[in-house]
Design a protein around this nucleic acid. Sequence first.
DNA 1: CACGGATCCTGATGGC
DNA 2: TGCCATCAGGATCCGT
Length: 270
Amino acid sequence: MPELPEVEVTRLSFASRIAGARIASAQMGKPLRWPLGVPVQQLAGRVVRAVRRRGKYLLLDLDDGLLLIHLGMSGSLSFTSSPQALGKHDHFELITHQGILRLHDPRRFGAVVFAPSEDSAVAQKLLGKLGVEPLTDAFEARSFHAGLKQRHSPIKQVLLAGEVVVGVGNIYACEVLFLAGIRPTLRADRLSFPRALKLHAAIQKVLARAVAQGGSTLKDFSNASGEAGHFQLEAHVYGRAGLACHGCGTPIKMIRQGQRSTFFCRTCQR
DNA sequence: CACGGATCCTGATGGC
DNA sequence: TGCCATCAGGATCCGT
């Protein structure tokens, strides 16, 4: 479900409401990607100070330590006031006096991990190699190009790997490469600076718009308050194999790159 | 060490 | 209707 815009929209939908909340209790359903790191009982009594985001991770700052939450492929968070029994796919819950935070994740590729601090080995193992945040001033065209120059893999896979820039998932990677007119199979280090500049602009524009409009409606996304996204920009290539390119009419191609589907127009993208 | 492939898990969908 | 194969928004781990 979530690429960076959806994670950010989720964060915005509950961050201010959970800030200052004291944890009454916590519980786990089925195991997620990694163990929590501490027994759930040890979370009781701690206070949630703030919710930040790094890449596709949400960081819940506690008065002592932090929780790292990742939504994986199928995860979503809800923050509600009404208690109810954990559903089949609800695998983590924080009960606070300001509301109940619940992680719903059918495929369980998501994660909830406790770390004593952001600098701790536990946290750095997950966050340490992440690339620059695309919606900050740190995402700058020249260093982006320099980062690409060091990679010999196809540009699509370099974007997905998240070590140059974070947050661009499979859908937005396809869309952004279409908007920049770049073929997904092109080696990252072969991009000229002008073309990297176009890609840089496309990433900023598409991700920022998606956040502003409440997340993508390409799939069934809703935020932690249960509100659906209104991202109007329809996909140009993603999920459109065989259909006419919006630019030139050529049928959109679908190929496989690293076990993921890639969609592109072989006329518009070079 | 940079790269590519296999892998975790469940559900939806389409062909026969 | 059932059975099987394929595909799904992610990212780590492991072998080369």
